[in-house]
Amino acid sequence: MLKAKVHVFLKPSVLDPQGQAVTNSLHSLGYAAIKETRISKYIEIIFDDDDAHRVSEQVHTICDKLLANPNTEKYAFELEALKQQ
């Protein structure tokens, strides 16, 4: 089994109001050195398949089709081998 650990994040050119709110909150907690915070999504997908090449291709397709919006987001992922239950 393989686990895909997918990060979907906003492109740098896209404003992240949630990140800004968190930055403001951290500033008010006294963390003055924090320059920017960006919020992203983390998604885990478990595959009942050990073929990393095939799984990797599928994760790319899944991200392009559904998980990431190409207008505003980018994605990155890594695969982790899981022991059979």
Binding site: L15, P17, Q18
Partner: peptide, 11 residues
């Protein structure tokens, strides 16, 4: 249609 509807600036 092109573009994306993102979260409101005010959240």
């Amino acid at each position: 249609l092109p573009g994306t509807l993102m979260m409101n600036k005010t959240l």
